[in-house]
Amino acid sequence: MTRLAPSSPGSGDDCLVVGGGLIGMLTARELALEGWRVRILERGEAGAESSWAGGGILSPLYPWRSPEPITRLAIWSQRRYQALAEQLRAESGIDPEWYHTGMLVLDSGEGSKARYWARDHGLRLELPDNERVAKLEPALGTAPGDAVWMPEVANIRNPRLVRALRGSLDHLGVPLHEQTPVTGWLKSEGRIEGVETESGRFEAGCVILAGGAWSGNLLAGTRVSADIRPVRGQMVVFRTTPDRIRRVLLRHDHYIIPRRDGHVLAGSTLEEAGFDKTTTEEARRQLVRLAVSMVPALGNAPVERHWAGLRPGSPEGVPLIGPHPELEGLWLNTGHYRNGVVMGPASARLLTDLLMGWPTRLDPSVYAPAPAEV
C-alpha cells in the first residue's frame, strides 16, 4: 500500500473528510494530530444526525452476539474513552460527560455464552442473583430472574460529545464547512482528487467518505460493495432527579440510559423508513411503556423530548474502513450502524494508521471495502 503523508507547506489540503458527524470529526482530529491539513465538508449541521440522536452507550447491545470485528473496535475504544473525553474537555472547554454506570442486561437467557465471551476478551462480567440485581439498581420493578452485569460499561452524552469534538477541531485549526453537500467526485485517470459541492470544487490529496446514512448514495456507481442504508431510530427522554436510576438497563432490545443531571433516555426503534425522520405517536407510546415496565417510577416522570435519527445500516453492522477497491485516493470510514459511538475512536485510529502506512493496532482486512460483484 502506498503511504500517504502530509504535503509540504502551501500545497493545499492533505485530505478532505466528507461528513461532519462523529466518525468524520474523530478521523479528522486523528489526522490533524499527526500534522495533516484536513478539511471537513458536512451536508447539514456538524454532528446533528445519528451522532447527536443516539444514546451513547459505550458498548454494543448484547455484545456477545456481535461479530468479532465489531467487538475488536468496541473494546479498543472502550479502553480509551475516558482519556479521550478528558482530552476533548481540555481542548474545547466542554465536558462530554463520560459516565461510568455499568450495564445490566435483564433478559439475555445467554448467561453461559456471555460469561465465556467475556473471559475470552479479558472483560469483567457477572451473572448476579436477584438480590444482587436489586442492590445494583433499586429502581427496577420485578426481579428479572436472568441478568448479566457488565460493570466496566460507561456511557457518554452524544450532543456534548459532538460539541466537544467541534471545539477540539477549532482548537486544532481544522476547517469545517456546514451546509455543503457533496454532489460528485473529481476524478482523473481513475483517481479521486477532490469533490464537487453546491458551493464549488474542493481538491486534496485524498478524500475520506464518512457520510453516515448518506454514504450509500455517494458510493452509488463507484463499483464497491457497500450496502449502506438509513435505518430510523426513535427515542424519548424523561426528566427525573439525579441518581434516580444508576445503571444502563437493557431488556427486549430496548434500553434505559441515565445521565448525570437526572435525564433518562429510553430507546430505540428500528425502522426501515428511508430518509424520513418523522416521529410517530405509536413509537412514543411503545418506548414509554417499555421504559416504565423496567422502571415503574418513570411512569410519574414527564417526557421532555421525543426525536428520531437515521443510523447508517450495513450488513451485520461491520463498518467499511480502508481504501476504495478501485478509486485511488478515496477512503471509507462508514457503515457503523448502531455502534458508531463505541467503535468511533478505534475506526478513526485504524484509518489514520492505514493512511500513514503504519502498523495497525487491529487487523484491517476484516473492514476492507470490497469490489461490487458484476
Rank of each mutant, 00 (worst) to 15 (best):
M1W: 02
A5I: 00
S7P: 08
S8M: 00
G20K: 10
L26W: 00
A32P: 01
R39E: 11
I40R: 08
E42P: 06
A48G: 03
S51C: 04
S51H: 02
G54E: 10
G56D: 13
Y62I: 06
Y62Q: 05
P69L: 12
Q82G: 10
A83W: 03
L84H: 03
L84T: 03
A85K: 01
E86H: 04
Q87I: 04
A90V: 03
S92V: 04
I94K: 00
D95E: 07
Y99C: 14
G102N: 04
L106S: 10
G109H: 07
K113D: 09
H121N: 05
G122Q: 03
L123Q: 11
E126H: 13
R132S: 03
R132C: 02
V133G: 14
A147I: 05
W149Y: 14
W149D: 10
M150E: 08
P151G: 09
R160N: 09
S168K: 06
L169T: 08
G173R: 04
V174P: 04
Q179G: 04
E189P: 00
G190V: 00
T197H: 04
R201I: 14
F202M: 06
C206T: 14
C206E: 10
L209V: 13
T222Q: 08
V231N: 04
V231R: 09
M235C: 14
V236D: 11
V236R: 14
V237P: 01
T241I: 00
I245Q: 12
D261R: 02
L270F: 14
T278Y: 01
T279K: 09
E281P: 01
E282F: 11
V288K: 07
L290N: 10
M294R: 11
P296Q: 06
L298Q: 08
V303W: 11
V303D: 08
H306E: 13
W307R: 10
R311H: 03
P325R: 15
W331M: 04
T334H: 04
Y337W: 13
N339Q: 07
V341M: 13
A346V: 10
R349D: 12
M356W: 06
M356H: 12
W358V: 12
T360Y: 09
L362T: 09
